[in-house]
């Protein structure tokens, strides 16, 4: 896995996290529940549900119904924009407006897994599966 870029705009983050960073994605067993926290700059979770619960539900919420404040997080539940798997995959790889890109923190297989999970849960019932090769083709050249 390639090392994430470290652009000047991320200087603030790097300073604060103070460099106790390894370059491979490893998991730290949580003490009581068996869930995992990542130890490096990439996410350690492998399957779609674990990835959703570690990342996506922070904003899109555990029920995938989104949330509304001064702005909003769109619902992923029953979301017609998920019809073509390449669209959510592109958003995960590249980000969209305020949503950060995850292309540097997730590998192709992880992105395929989480997209497939969202497209087959929360009232979504898309049968076709996204594969890692397709995700690879969506990455910036």
């Amino acid at each position: 896995m390639k090392k994430p870029k470290n652009p000047a705009g991320l200087r603030f983050l790097c300073v604060l996290t103070a460099a106790l960073v390894t370059t491979t994605a490893q998991a730290q067993s949580d003490l009581s529940s068996g869930a995992v926290f990542s130890t490096g700059p990439s996410f350690a979770q492998r399957d779609g549900r674990a990835l959703y619960e570690a990342i996506c539900q922070g904003c899109h919420m555990p029920d995938a119904k989104g949330a509304v404040g001064a702005g909003r997080y769109p619902a992923l539940a029953g979301n017609a924009n998920l019809a073509a798997a390449r669209y959510p995959a592109t958003v995960v790889v590249n980000g969209l407006r305020a949503m950060p890109a995850f292309g540097d923190q997730l590998d192709d297989q992880q992105i395929a897994e989480v997209v497939n999970y969202v497209r087959s849960h929360f009232g979504n019932d898309f049968k076709d599966l996204l594969d890692a090769g397709t995700v690879k083709s969506l990455r910036p050249k």
Binding site: A8, L10, F12
Partner: peptide, 21 residues
């Protein structure tokens, strides 16, 4: 406090890169 859950900012800070700037 998790900043992506803060209703009035939806995040902690704007992340720029050299390319974006």
């Amino acid at each position: 406090v998790a900043w992506h859950r803060v209703p009035w900012t939806l995040g902690c800070l704007g992340v720029w890169t050299d390319e974006r700037r």
